[in-house]
Simulated assay, not measured.
Amino acid sequence: MGKALTPQPPAWIIEALADDDRDSAQAVIDLLIDHNAPFLGRPGVQRFRRAVFDAQRRIVGGLLGEFRTHWLHVDILVLDKSLRGSGIGRALIEQAEAAARERGCHGLWLDTFVFQAPDFYEHLGFTRFGTIENFHDGQARYFYLKRF
């Protein structure tokens, strides 16, 4: 009779990271950056942020984005309802485009819902490159880009 095999512990474990465990999260990001580097280089992630203030210095809108792998991703663009159609949204996008061009980016990309601003982005020259139909409760989610 052969020798009995002793069970070996697994060579890996999957576990949740705490929200404040930034070091472990960064280690995961670093793994991806190392993998992508031969293909994309090592562009650092930097934030692009603009806020719109009213006369009382209350925030009434803004644009939050990040430069990622040679593109500026617009995470959030929002304006108070009273300011929509005023040209401020266009000005925010123009500032984002200028900053992206200055950094040598290929363009901007973003996503929006059907009930948000697809017509606004198309009017500014963005091209829809993807759609998730029925993303939630019948609402479509659109993905746009604008190349320079």
Score class of each variant (00 low, 15 high):
L63R: 01
S82Y: 04
P38A: 03
R42A: 12
F67Q: 03
G85N: 11
E66P: 02
R103S: 09
L110R: 11
R90A: 12
K81N: 07
R84G: 08
V74E: 01
I76P: 03
L64V: 13
N36V: 00
L110G: 06
R101P: 15
D80T: 04
G41E: 09
L92T: 03
R47D: 05
G87N: 14
E66Y: 12
A91E: 09
K81D: 12
H106T: 15
A37W: 12
R84L: 04
G85V: 07
G44E: 00
L108T: 04
G107E: 03
Q46L: 01
W71H: 13
A96H: 13
V60D: 02
Q46W: 03
T69C: 10
R103V: 09
L79S: 13
V45S: 05
R84F: 14
C105S: 10
D80C: 01
E94G: 15
F67R: 05
G107D: 10
P118H: 02
I88V: 14
A55I: 06
D54C: 06
D54K: 02
F113A: 11
G89R: 05
F115K: 02
L63W: 01
R57Q: 10
G107C: 08
F39C: 02
S82A: 13
L63P: 05
Q56E: 04
D119L: 03
A98Y: 06
A117Q: 00
F53H: 09
R50K: 06
L40F: 04
V74W: 05
V78E: 00
E94P: 13
D34R: 01
R42M: 14
G62T: 06
K81C: 05
V45I: 01
H73D: 08
A51Y: 12
W109H: 09
A96S: 14
H106E: 07
